[in-house]
C-alpha cells in the first residue's frame, strides 16, 4: 500500500454532531519532572520551576472538546504526550493542574463513574496471555457486570472474526487478532466513550484498514472514540484531529481543513542522488522546508513566483541527474511537518 493513500473511503461518513460534549479538557497540564533537568516529559508547555516549587501554570496546558459520536484523533510522534493524555482522561493518573471531564463526570472526583462507562484499550497489548480468547472476553464481561450475550450485537462484527480461535490462548494469537480481541474486551460493556491508545501500532496494513472500518461502524452506534496514532495516514479517517508535539497541540481541525489550510506550494522531487538532493534542496533559499517522504522529497516553496522549471535549473547546476518534480496535494503529514517547524 502506498503511504499516503487513504486506507478507508470515508466520503460517506456523516458526522453525528450537536449531541453535546463527550470529553471536555481545560488547561490540562502534567509534568513528570524527569531527573535530567531541562528535559520535559508530560502534557502542556514546559514550565519553569521544579516539583517542589512549581510556577503558576496558567495557559500552559492543553484544552479541547470532543463531541458525542465523534472519532477524534490525537496525532503525533512518540513521546508527544498522547499516552499521558489518555491516562489522565481514563482516571489512571492525575494532572498537575487543569480540569477534564468525560461524559460529564470529572476525572478526579467522579473517577468511579467514569470507570464504569468508558472502554479503554492501552497501547501495549494488555490481556491475559495464558487465558483463551473466550476466557478473556468472559472475564472482562463479568468485570463490567455484564455478559457476552447481552452486548453480543455490538462486538459481533469484530468478535466473529476471532471466534474460530476462541479456544486458543491469547498469547498465541497474531498481532491483528490480539488487537481485535482487545477491542472486543474494551467494548463488551457498551461504553459511551472509547479510548484507543495507538491501537494500530504494530498491526499489518490489512488489519489496520479493517480496524478503521470497525471504528466507523462503532461511531454509527453512537460511541464517541478518542484514538491516538503515530500514523499520519490514519488522520484523514477521523472526524477531527489534534496534532500534538512535545505536549502541545499544534492544531485542532477536521483533516480536510488542515490540508486546505496548507499555505505553500508543495512539490515532490526525485533524482539519482537522494541524499545530496535533500541537502541541496534545504540549501536553496526559496525552500521553506524539505523532508524525505518515502522515495521522494517533499519541498514546500515559500516564494509564489518560483516554478518547477526554476528548481530544475538549480538542481541541474548542482549536478543532479534524472530530476523529476511533481506538484502534489499536501497530506496531513506535510501539514504536521510544517506546523511542527513553527
Amino acid at each position: 500500500m502506498k503511504k499516503n493513500e487513504t486506507i478507508v473511503d470515508n466520503s460517506n461518513l456523516v458526522p453525528i454532531q450537536g449531541l453535546g460534549v463527550a470529553i471536555e479538557v481545560k488547561n490540562l497540564y502534567k509534568n513528570y519532572y524527569p531527573i535530567k533537568s531541562g528535559e520535559f516529559a508530560g502534557l502542556g508547555r514546559p514550565a519553569i520551576g521544579d516539583k517542589s516549587n512549581p510556577v503558576p501554570l496558567q495557559g500552559l496546558g492543553v484544552s479541547f472538546e470532543v463531541n458525542r459520536g465523534e472519532i477524534f484523533g490525537i496525532i503525533g510522534p512518540d513521546g508527544a504526550g498522547k499516552t499521558t493524555l489518555f491516562r489522565i482522561l481514563t482516571t489512571l493518573i492525575l494532572a498537575n493542574s487543569g480540569t477534564a471531564s468525560v461524559d460529564g463526570f470529572d476525572v478526579v472526583n467522579d473517577y468511579k463513574e467514569i470507570r464504569k462507562r468508558v472502554g479503554y484499550m492501552p497501547g501495549k497489548f494488555s490481556l491475559y496471555q495464558d487465558l483463551t480468547v473466550e476466557e478473556n472476553l468472559n472475564f472482562f464481561a463479568t468485570v463490567f457486570n455484564t455478559t457476552i450475550e447481552e452486548n453480543y450485537e455490538l462486538i459481533k462484527d469484530i468478535y466473529q472474526q476471532i471466534e474460530p480461535f476462541k479456544k486458543r490462548r491469547a498469547g498465541k494469537l497474531s498481532g491483528g487478532m490480539k488487537q481485535k480481541l482487545a477491542l472486543s474486551c474494551a467494548l463488551i460493556h457498551k461504553p459511551s466513550v472509547l479510548f484507543l491508545d495507538e491501537p494500530t501500532t504494530g498491526v499489518d496494513p490489512v488489519s489496520r484498514k479493517e480496524f478503521w472500518g470497525m471504528l466507523k461502524s462503532l461511531r454509527e452506534q453512537g460511541i464517541t472514540i478518542l484514538v491516538s496514532t503515530p500514523y499520519m495516514d490514519e488522520a484523514s479517517l477521523c472526524d477531527r484531529i489534534a496534532l500534538i508535539q512535545n505536549g502541545q497541540f499544534l492544531k485542532i481541525e477536521t483533516p480536510e481543513n488542515i490540508v486546505a489550510q496548507y499555505e505553500n506550494k508543495l512539490w515532490a522531487v526525485e533524482s539519482d542522488n537522494m541524499h545530496k538532493l535533500l541537502i541541496d534542496l534545504r540549501n536553496n533559499e526559496m525552500t521553506k522546508n524539505c523532508f524525505a517522504f518515502g522515495d521522494k522529497h517533499h519541498v514546500s516553496i515559500s516564494n509564489e513566483q518560483m516554478t518547477i522549471e526554476n528548481l530544475k535549473e538549480y538542481l541541474m547546476k548542482e549536478n543532479h541527474t534524472n530530476i523529476q518534480i511533481l506538484e502534489i496535494e499536501p497530506t496531513v503529514e506535510d501539514c504536521f511537518m510544517q506546523l511542527s517547524q513553527k
Binding site: T90, T91, R115, P122, S126, L127, V143
Partner: peptide, 13 residues
Amino acid sequence: EMGTMEILLVSPM
C-alpha cells in the same frame, strides 16, 4: 507489569 492492571483499574472492579 503486564499492563492488565491498567484495564482492571479502568473498570468498576
